[in-house]
């Protein structure tokens, strides 16, 4: 099957602490930090959106893979914050990596799992030999209504993965993938609405947990794998608590999910979340190790992947800054008013 040839992640440098949001709404920061297992979240710059984040991630992936933009036969961008309702983000990305015009490109939307849906689509094109390389991106500047619980987690970031079919290129083989999908009204945003709505506690059991466990168990059923067969696991992370709970439910240990658990320090990057987690895990994974990834998108569905790291990973390791280093080294804190300005919620008259 197709494998990962290169990857790149990008998280905006701005951060806001839970305390700064809680102060505005007279809420108890400590209980929110403990309840959601989150300390701070990334905030996009005023001049950043899902397209600029996708481009930065894509450029890092190209550098990591040591390929040219023109090598890409497809570019798919998954997001729930595409800058245009009609005009693709994917064409902006393709132009910005100088991919030329001879490629397939489209925008995808499936809440927080549109990026991993893109990985599956590119895998199909590579495995059927329609293209040699393709890129799947998950990128978001996610929205949270002021005062809503989502405001503490909805953040910005993205990751890009280049997939190919030749063993000599691959840093990791994707040995199997499955999806688990149902019509579940846990979280939505209507056309033209500025902020998403959600079903509160309903987003948990019938949404996140049912689909993540459904996809992961299906992967186990079809492959014969069990949790102990994997060195690492990455789950979608809408907050810092859900992935820890679902990992425990499925029989994974904390040490398996720690490298990919990024939400406590960057927030929920929506379409970027499980992909940034995978990028961070690949930063530390060694040849021969196995990684399991299960994304989740409201509406609802999960994509699950079994991945095996190859010996090629070490040769490419130093080409880009590791995700955790990027996130911890490049950050500057903003207060709530600058956060509102960066989000475009307040403007000069």
């Amino acid at each position: 099957m197709a494998g990962i040839v290169g990857y790149g992640a990008y998280v905006p440098i701005y951060r806001i602490k839970v305390e700064d949001i809680a102060k505005v709404w007279s809420e108890d920061a400590e209980s929110i930090k403990k309840g959601l297992n989150i300390r701070e979240k990334s905030v996009p710059g005023r001049d950043e959106d899902a397209a600029t984040i996708a481009v930065e991630a894509a450029r890092r992936a190209i550098q990591h893979a040591d390929l040219e933009g023109t090598d890409m036969g497809a570019v798919y961008v998954g997001s729930e914050s595409h800058p245009y309702a009609v005009k693709p983000t994917a064409t902006v990305v393709a132009q910005a990596i100088e991919a030329g015009s001879r490629l397939m490109a489209a925008d995808l939307e499936f809440a927080c799992k549109a990026g991993t849906a893109g990985i599956q689509m590119v895998m199909g094109l590579v495995d059927s030999k329609m293209i040699k390389y393709g890129m799947a991106i998950g990128s978001d500047t996610s929205q949270g209504r002021p005062g809503d619980a989502l405001e503490y987690t909805a953040s910005a970031g993205g990751a890009a993965f280049i997939l190919g079919g030749e063993k000599k290129d691959m840093i990791a083989n994707i040995t199997h993938t499955v999806s688990y999908t149902s019509d579940t009204p846990d979280f939505w945003r209507r056309e033209g609405a500025s902020f998403p709505s959600h079903g509160g506690r309903f987003t948990g059991e019938p949404g996140y947990f049912r689909h993540i466990t459904g996809a992961t168990k299906l992967l186990f059923e079809q492959t014969g794998f069990k949790p102990s067969d994997f060195d690492y696991a990455v789950f979608h992370q809408p907050n810092g608590k859900f992935p820890i709970n679902v990992a425990a439910q499925l029989g994974f240990e904390m040490r398996q999910i720690e490298p990919g658990l990024m939400t406590p320090i960057i927030g929920n990057t929506y379409s970027g979340a499980s992909m940034i987690g995978l990028a961070s895990t690949l930063d530390v994974a060694r040849p021969g190790q196995r990684i399991m990834v299960t994304s989740f998108g409201s509406g609802a569905g999960s994509d699950s992947f079994a991945i095996e790291v190859t010996e090629n990973i070490d040769a490419k390791r130093d080409r880009i800054e590791p995700v955790r280093e990027m996130v911890s080294k490049h950050k500057t804190y903003v207060d709530y008013s600058v956060y509102l300005k960066n989000r475009g919620s307040i403007t000069k008259t």
Binding site: G45, D47, E48, D49, T52, V55, E56, R59, A96
Partner: peptide
């Protein structure tokens, strides 16, 4: 000061 290019909204 050293700089590098980034892709942004203008």
């Amino acid at each position: 000061t050293k700089v590098r290019m980034q892709f942004r909204k203008m």
